[in-house]
Structure formats: C-alpha cells, structure tokens
C-alpha cells in the first residue's frame, strides 16, 4: 500500500480543481496524513480471493422505454445560472 508520505497536496489539489491557500495545504497535509496512516490498516486484510462490492444490492442494466416526456422549461433550467444571456449560460472566453 502507498505510504502516507506520498500525498503530494499540490498535485492532488490540481486534479481536484481546488485552489488551496498555503495554510490549507499545510493543515490538510497533516490531517490527511493522520487519516491515511489510519486507512493503511486495510493492507492487513487478506482480499486475495474476494470479489469487490460496488454497492450492496447490485441492480444492473436498468432499462427504460425511450418515450418523450416533459423536461424542465429553459427558464427553470437557467434559474440558477450565475450568468446568462439569450437563453444561454455565459462563461469566460474558452477559445480566442
């Protein structure tokens, strides 16, 4: 199992798309180090012949008829948009 010291907070925060302050990085590194050292106890369990459980009562391939149904009106769907114009969500420039 990976060693707790492996956590590279800058790398992981970048993957998670969260800008952390230097103070947060310091505190989270220490707290997550404690949690990872605790989690490491799982390496003691013999799971060599065990199938994984994704959730407790697996129901797979749930199908539904492809029938048209009323959806959210545009106005309702855009009600919570931080910025909008002409029935569209406004975002910063993506392509120059």
């Amino acid at each position: 199992m990976a060693s707790p010291s492996d956590i590279d907070i800058d790398y992981v925060a970048n993957l998670a798309r969260i800008a952390l302050t230097d103070t947060e990085k310091e505190i989270f590194s220490r707290q997550l180090g404690d949690v990872l050292r605790y989690i490491e106890k799982l390496s003691a369990v013999d799971v060599s012949h065990v199938e994984p459980t994704a959730h407790a009562f697996p129901i797979s391939n749930v199908w539904a008829e492809d029938t048209p149904q009323p959806g959210l009106p545009v106005e309702a769907a855009l009600r919570n948009a931080p910025a909008q114009r002409d029935d569209m969500i406004v975002v910063p420039v993506v392509v120059e």
């Binding site: 390496s43 994984p52 459980t53 994704a54």
Partner: peptide
C-alpha cells in the same frame, strides 16, 4: 481494496 473489504 476497500471494495473487496466491503464484501467481507
């Protein structure tokens, strides 16, 4: 590994 322990 956690999903396997979940089975147990």
């Amino acid at each position: 590994r956690a999903q396997k322990v979940r089975t147990l």
